[in-house]
Design a protein around this nucleic acid. Structure first.
Lengths: 200, 200
DNA sequence: CAGTAACGGAGAGCATCTCTCCGTTCGGAG
DNA sequence: CTCCGAACGGAGAGATGCTCTCCGTTACTG
């Protein structure tokens, strides 16, 4: 998405297109998928007209940015799948996935299903990622380190668990607060399970 | 808050005031703290004027509703504190607290600090509740059933963990999905701890 | 240098929200 | 039952914020 086909794109045009994508990424990370076009073009230091000439709609730009983010996480999941230690691969991926969502509110909104009316292409990338997480889960279960009764859905839910608690009950949110939550959950994910899970 | 001092309030006036509070409760539960006045008065089947004559502002009505909700949860925490089994008391409270927030989006927003510009009275009720949860945590730790390195903050973060995942990655959200997440977390909270938590 | 692709940003047009104002209704005391 | 004023309903003022279009201006490139 970020890479363009080597057409006769004018140099300034290309520069501003890349600036727009980067600006959209940071605006969406901070304010979520409904970050305003005004916010995006101010960060990019371009006019609104430029955004609409290049992308046609705000939705198309948002989709580009989301797909970029999902593709990056996909590479992490794929790398984890060839890690020698299935438990370390799973837990490392879980920390990274959570951190990515904490750093990018838009991504967290997509993961938790709050996204509205996105192009089907985005959903496809989401499904690919879900499949990779499913493989990670099964591999760790076959290895015997992950409790047998969890599914990829449980993993994804745990990954977004710390999102809502960013600034909680007046607490000065520490850098490490989310790591504590994930660590507790990972302890609960270890085999053997201490108690039975309710059915899905 | 719901109960009025026995003044010479006209019967119809009292009826509509109670209807407004109940309507606000359900609107806030469904749409969060920024539920619109229009939504509230339609549920209550009264005019907007009635809302503003009785409560002065939307914010005052929202605060009333929030305080009611917090007070109810406070009674659960207080009851848990005199339960004979500290672990059962803690885990039972955690399930109930989470369920209450799932059933009331506004409450979840307040807990996770997304509330803006609420009267200080609401924050005071939040602090009272936090103190009660702190006592629940310490009691279970002294009893030896809860790992020693968690705090009330960890508990609150876990309680709001399932909120974001209501409808996740296209999954048809099951009634029990949140219970699975909480159960996994509780298994991770049991003493002895499998791994050390990062410092707060 | 000329031609034209790309640009900037004012503002149209729409949606939505809170709160006010005032003519109307109706509860309840005498 | 009558009557008075407390309580009511809801149109709409006024504010904000959003996406997207249009067109005069700028500046890249052959």
């Amino acid at each position: 998405m970020v890479t363009a086909e080597a057409s006769q794109e004018r140099a300034d045009s290309r520069r501003k297109r890349l600036r727009l994508i980067e600006a959209a990424r940071s605006a969406i990370a901070e304010h979520g998928l409904q970050a305003s076009t005004t916010d995006i073009v101010e960060r990019a230091e371009v006019g609104v007209g430029t955004l609409y000439r290049r992308f046609g709609s705000k939705e198309a730009l948002v989709a580009d940015v989301l797909i970029d983010g999902l593709a990056e996480i996909q590479t992490w999941a794929d790398a984890a799948l060839i890690d020698a230690d299935p438990w370390a691969a799973l837990s490392g991926f879980l920390y990274a996935f959570t951190e990515a969502q904490l750093a990018n509110l838009g991504l967290a909104e997509f993961t938790s299903g709050q996204a509205r009316e996105l192009p089907p292409e985005v959903a496809e990338h989401g499904s690919l990622l879900a499949a990779a997480i499913d493989r990670l889960v099964r591999r760790a279960q076959e290895h015997g380190s992950l409790r047998a009764d969890v599914t990829w859905r449980d993993l994804v839910l745990i990954s977004i668990a710390p999102i809502g608690g960013e600034e909680c009950l007046g607490a000065t949110r520490g850098e490490n607060q989310w790591r504590r939550t994930i660590t507790i959950a990972l302890d609960g994910l270890r085999a053997p399970a201490a108690s039975a899970l309710p059915p899905e």
